[in-house]
Design a binder for these strands. Structure first.
Lengths: 339, 339
DNA sequence: TCAGGTTGGGAAAGCGTTTTCACTTGCAAA
DNA sequence: TTTGCAAGTGAAAACGCTTTCCCAACCTGA
């Protein structure tokens, strides 16, 4: 069915070897005439090389795998875009795996990607702290690495791999300071998934910053969330029901913050007049909601691009790249109304 | 380096053939003992089959390619998510190609995907009307199809392929009616990329609906846009500068509508009090901006899922699936203020 | 006892490439 | 006229798997 190199060679009246040499610009010298004949034949027959045959003999594919929780979450979408940009620059194809936030799928995809012999796996949707799961995942990834594959993770993970990490700690601290400076003293936090290290870093740093300013945050004022919009909405409502006196809410990511924003508005709670609200990530729409969200800018596209660069670099040593974050003050924060 | 089937066979003390039969549950009978020996050996050696070798001999890969304009555009992100869901169900891996809205890349990716011998290509980011380009793309895709690959497009294209298309015409008409019913008589349109059929369908249907109600839309009141947020913002401003009397604006997609919304707010133009604004697609955040956007719901995830189903179906005939759309009235539209 | 199945297993032929190695030339040097 | 080399070309061996074909062993019924 498909045109093979043999067909091209036959048509050009040369050997397989020569045809191959011409078509992938090998170092070996090939006469002008052969070159012309082969390229002409290839074009006439509309020859398209078979990447699988090439992969088999070259023992390398120009392909990387990316595992994310949810491609339609703006956070991951931006990361994906960053990866794609540098993948394209590096001439790599990208296999995207969506876990739909189910850890089990992550494991399955690692295996599938290993079958595909991708050059590298970039893990953007995980970071579980769960011991048992983490061991299982590590085993999978080690097996992948032992075949010569590279692994890079985005966000901190308890996994021996290249990593690129935004400064969650600094960002959360800046948010806390900002709110404290405005005069807030009573806080609520909408947490992320319990086991994610990203959650831990952001939450702990925020709480820590409050503590060191003499403010104690009761553990019940930290409501579990799941990084989804609706989770954020529910959490915001629960928070205000339990602690009506709260004047500032920190949602651990923008997606939840926006859910919270809408939920508060529907409840007639004015932001920032009655409650200040901050998020994290600075996803594109954070600037477009009303009021615009005060948040911390995470360079998501760079996160992706760096991860790929790390994974593709020849350097064998494990490296970790920290990317700075920056607080972005917008309209969702204001001084608390006088008590 | 890597463990091969031969290693497994050797360790189990059986032939390659037997090992292969066990490992992919072939129809051929294999004795219980052999089966046990092979599976044990495979596990002990941590064997991972090489998908490329399999692809070579099976002459099929369980892989599909998806070409989109921009993964971080919510419209495409949702589509991607739909595709991914049914791809996972069908046991397929998905190669995602981001064109960054550069047509040239589309062509390159078709070639690359063809090299990968993907089972199907889903084209979600194109739809150009440009003759020359379209011919070139068609040639590429035909070449792909002639190798046994399937092609599905999302949104109408002038390409012989399976297609899944949202009801752009009906949606745009519903928007026009809605605005007319509210009493608007002076309209502006923020167009999409000139060559996209999606643009044409939405714009023409809208204009047509106005015309048949006796309203003539001057061509200058149709400002070119590019389906991006900032493009929408610029267009909205240009529109109001040229036609200050406009009371309703139709942005051909939500992303531009949100850009317009923010731009108008910054200019002190109240939506919907001074100007009503409608978009198209109903991307997730359309409901979260203020005021919430009146728009047309396009079932983006279904668009993706259907496209994959079409592409993977054994049915050889070219099919087109139309998906209904539905107007969603929210806060961004209101009757015009009395003149 | 023997023809005719059935059952389980292996050898080997691909699949479409790349690359090593060996083989011709033609030509400069001896 | 040899010899030695470089340049250009091709034959063939991988790469890791699936599957066809063939063979041996065992069983069944006459």
């Amino acid at each position: 069915m498909a045109v093979t190199l043999a067909d091209v060679a036959r048509r050009a009246g040369v050997s397989l070897a020569t045809a191959s040499r011409v078509l992938n610009g090998s170092a070996r010298a090939v006469s002008e005439e052969m070159r012309a004949r082969v390229t002409a034949a290839a074009r006439e027959l509309n020859y398209v090389p078979n990447a699988h045959a090439q992969a088999l003999v070259r023992a390398t594919t120009r392909t990387v795998g990316v595992i994310v929780h949810d491609v339609s979450d703006p956070y991951f979408a931006e990361i994906l875009r960053g990866i794609q940009r540098s993948a394209a620059d590096a001439g790599r194809l990208m296999i995207v795996c969506n876990t739909f936030r189910e850890p089990q799928r992550e494991l399955e995809y690692v295996h599938l990607l290993q079958m595909q012999r991708v050059e590298a796996i970039i893990l953007a949707g995980s970071g579980l702290d769960d011991r048992a799961y983490c061991r299982e995942l590590t085993e999978s990834l080690d097996s992948f690495a032992s075949l010569g594959g590279r692994v890079a993770v985005i966000g901190r993970h308890n996994i021996a791999a290249d990593a690129v990490i935004p400064d969650n700690v600094g960002g959360a601290r800046a948010l806390a300071r900002h709110l404290l400076d405005l005069g807030h003293r009573s806080f609520g936090v909408i947490d992320g998934p319990a086991l994610l290290t990203t959650s831990r870093d952001r939450r702990n740093s925020f709480v820590q910053a409050l503590t060191s300013s003499g403010i104690d945050l009761p553990p019940e004022a930290i409501i579990p969330g799941d990084f989804t919009r609706d989770g954020g909405a529910r959490a915001a409502i629960a928070l205000l029901e339990r602690f009506p006196s709260i004047t500032a809410i920190f949602a651990l990511n923008d997606v939840m913050a926006i859910g919270a924003l809408v939920a508060l508005r529907e409840r007639g709670v004015a932001v920032p007049d009655q409650v200040s609200l901050v998020g994290f990530d600075d996803i594109p729409i954070a600037a477009d909601v009303t009021p615009a969200l005060t948040t911390v800018r995470v360079p998501m596209d760079q996160l992706g691009a760096e991860a790929l660069a790390l994974a593709l670099s020849a350097d064998e040593t494990l490296r970790t790249v920290y990317l700075p974050t920056e607080i972005v003050v917008r309209g969702s924060t204001a001084p608390p109304t006088a008590p």
